[in-house]
Amino acid sequence: MSDVITETLDDYIKTQVLEAWKGPKTVPEQEYFTSGHRTCQGCESALVMKLMAKAAGPRTIILGSTGCMYVANTTYLSTPWSVPWMHTQLGSSGSAATGTAAGLRALMRKGKMEKERINVIAFCGDGGGADMGLSAISAALQHTEYNLLILMYDNESYANTDIQVSGSSPYGANSTFSPPGKERRIMHRRWKKNTAPMLAAGHPECKYVATVCMSYAVEAMNAVRKALSIGGPTFIHSLDPCPKGWDYDPMFSHELGELAVETGIWPLYEIEEGKIKMYGKSKRIVNGQMKRKPVQDYLLRQGRFAHFIDEDIEYFQAKTDEMWEKWLIPGVLPFSAEA
């Protein structure tokens, strides 16, 4: 009996090798998420959609949970998608991905579809993923018999409904749910959820978890390509500057992504088959080849932190220092072994 299952698995889990692109000049021209979406000027989450789809290629089904990337891209019978796309409920990216991968496999097994590797990607926002959809994502990452990628685009708020605080909003940020007042300046006191390591540590059989930022586009696309090649369920967490919710001139979208990495606030790494590998500037920070920029270079450029006074900046800096100086795995794993 188990042999039969193994055989079936062999047939359908067979994965592919999407080679890493060597630089921006080797990236193909085709767009599978094109112009004509109703996102803000300079929306980095829209750039995630464009580059994710480009990296995956035409034989891809994309599922998207409710949020800006659903509402701005598919309302009023108008869309920029050219690959099949389907909406799923706010907390359901995990179940939608598993169901779609299972459905495809069943159809192929029954001969109702030609056997072929079709990429299944479900995206979700930080609200839909790291808060509401955590259990479904967890379940998806345990189902090692399906090839799928869950990509969480993190604009650090429930953006679509006009910027409410989420578990991924940074400490102190202004939002519809945390407006600074005269009596109380800091209304959001929780530290940002450490989602990617939580999912990697909690699902030891998941072969690939990575963090990305679209300011490093080729690396981000290569992470998507690796996630779709390695086999089984995978997870990518992208940090996306959001000019509306973060309150900055849209022309700085790219630069703020870079600053998030350079200040150490957003570490870049891949956890591949149980091995952690920092990459890009984060690797240089860990290796001591690059000094982290002060967090205020990042914070004071955004209206969501305009109410910060020195003590708030110092707190933010100290917490960030802790990530790099005290954590068991700097920037990644918060606890350390007892001395």
Binding site: T34, G36, R38, Y76, S78, P80
Partner: peptide, 10 residues
């Protein structure tokens, strides 16, 4: 020249 969404031009 990629094909673009004909119903929203921006």
């Amino acid at each position: 020249v990629p094909t673009r969404n004909p119903t929203f031009k921006k």
